[in-house]
Write a protein that binds this DNA or RNA. Structure first.
Lengths: 118, 118
DNA sequence: GTAAACTATGGAGTATAGTCCAGAGTCAAG
DNA sequence: CTTGACTCTGGACTATACTCCATAGTTTAC
């Protein structure tokens, strides 16, 4: 698929896609060039961009992602390190879930306070 | 307390506190001026800044916060609207929690995949 | 075969949320 | 009464992640 089709599928702009490429988050694994120079994306591109979104919600910056992808793809990271990485991320997600549950409590209390003042 | 004490208590810089004031998120309710012009903060300032942090984790921008605070404090918002507001935020928090749980699943699957490849 | 729509590139511009700085006044300790 | 720490203001600067633009080549539909 060409860039605008990919953009539409993901609900982002073509500029954003080219920007991710410039930042090293998309490469030849995710697309090839047509004879005219147009980018032709494959399904991996969709997965990669969804992964970027997921990482962003975890607070990972694009710079961190591209550095990390480089290391990951160059196999400079051992399986054990990868395990540690994922487990750290899981712990981080758990912390966020806790924080959100606290936030939920806080908001529910606000609703209760409103009722009291009526 | 003066600005550096407040900053230290909250783990932020004095610049950030003055910046929040410039953005309308802190006002006379949270501090007064000493004769020399120095800001003297009260306990409400701590609560307000903690509230700002909470709102930020919900993705609320400072601009939205200050607009909202204006409306809220001018009592332009009815109790019913406030209830609706909080319930919307609760729904948003629930969505985030769902997203994080999905993320958790995804990460756990990655760990399982690592084990398979060993 | 031409107009509309799409794509490419490089570079400039934007929004958000700070962060830093210069120049100047204030305060507390010795 | 001076030195060092703190505070003030206004404004310039920064990082991140886009977003827009000019210019130019390509494709598609009629």
């Amino acid at each position: 698929m060409r860039i605008s089709e990919l953009a539409e599928k993901l609900g982002i702009s073509t500029d954003t896609i080219r920007y991710y490429e410039k930042r090293g988050l998309l490469n030849h694994h995710h697309m090839e060039r047509e004879d005219n120079g147009y980018r032709r994306y494959n399904e991996k591109a969709i997965e990669r961009i969804r992964l970027i979104f997921r990482a962003k919600t975890l607070g990972v910056t694009l710079a961190e992602m591209s550095q990390f992808i480089d290391e990951w793809e160059s196999e400079a990271i051992s399986v054990e390190d990868k395990r540690i990485f994922f487990n750290n991320k899981i712990a981080l997600v758990d912390k966020r879930i806790d924080a959100l549950n606290q936030m939920r409590e806080y908001l529910c209390q606000k609703v209760i306070d409103l009722e009291k003042n009526e």
